[in-house]
């Protein structure tokens, strides 16, 4: 038991590495603040393209969404970060992360928005148009709010997935929470820093997971 405690819950080591972990935590928060909004907006764009009336827009958009959904995000990130320099395009780790996860997140969010829009009855659109709203106004004020409400649990749980994805940035040595924790682990030969990181992820995401659980029950019931 003592061995277990000193390996996983070593308070001395935790205190010593706390500043490093905290720095990583702030960088992870920064990543989230950038990635979640661009992912949500990108997803909206992807959905609009994938439901376009013109098949020359719709088919490539659907193909791209399926392509990025079948691509492991880590492979995409490695390809962009360490593949593109061979073609003379050298990106900073942050730029590589943003591009890779935007492509991945927009595809998933796009699919969720599409399911949401399809769940809104056609009568709603017809009613909106017949009161004199334009097509764009109907979409913005009638369809989208109901669509988002219907798929809110899925949107939130994809956001949780996106935040969890930021840990992949540690593989390309970009500064974030898991990278700091893994660095601290290799400096101290002890797993406690990783446990600290795990605890911080739990603090960030557990409340969200509880909210999703609530919403799912409310919408299903």
């Amino acid at each position: 038991m003592d061995v277990f405690l000193s390996e996983f819950f070593n308070v001395d080591i935790m205190v010593k590495v706390a500043p490093l972990i905290f720095k990583g935590f702030l960088q992870t928060l920064l990543l989230c603040v950038i990635l979640v909004p661009i992912g949500l907006c990108g997803g909206l764009g992807a959905m609009l393209l994938a439901t376009s009336r013109s098949r020359f827009v719709r088919w490539p958009a659907v193909a791209a969404i399926d392509f990025f959904r079948s691509f492991p995000p880590l492979v995409l990130l490695i390809f962009i970060y360490s593949g593109l320099p061979f073609a003379g395009i050298r990106l900073s780790p942050l730029a590589a992360i943003c591009i890779a996860f935007l492509l991945n997140a927009a595809s998933y969010y796009g699919e969720i928005y599409r399911a949401g829009v399809e769940s809104v009855p056609r009568g709603q659109v017809e009613a909106g148009r017949s009161t004199g709203l334009g097509a764009a106004q109907t979409f913005l004020y009638i369809t989208l709010p109901q669509a988002v409400r219907n798929v809110l649990p899925e949107l939130l749980s994809n956001t949780v997935e996106l935040i969890k994805l930021t840990t992949l940035a540690s593989v390309i040595s970009a500064p974030e929470l898991l990278h700091s924790a893994d660095l601290a682990r290799s400096l101290t030969y002890n797993t406690s820093p990783l446990i600290m990181a795990a605890a911080l992820y739990l603090i960030m995401l557990w409340p969200l997971v509880r909210i999703i659980r609530r919403l799912e029950h409310k919408l299903a019931g």
């Binding site: 061995v3 390996e7 996983f8 994805l165 002890n190 797993t191 990783l194 739990l202 969200l208």
Partner: peptide, 22 residues
């Protein structure tokens, strides 16, 4: 809930680096 909140890479690293030391 815990498994839904934890990033998989964190779980993998904790098991991979932690267990050998115990």
């Amino acid at each position: 809930d815990v498994l839904r909140s934890l990033p998989p890479l964190v779980i993998i690293l904790v098991i991979y680096f932690g267990l050998p030391n115990v």
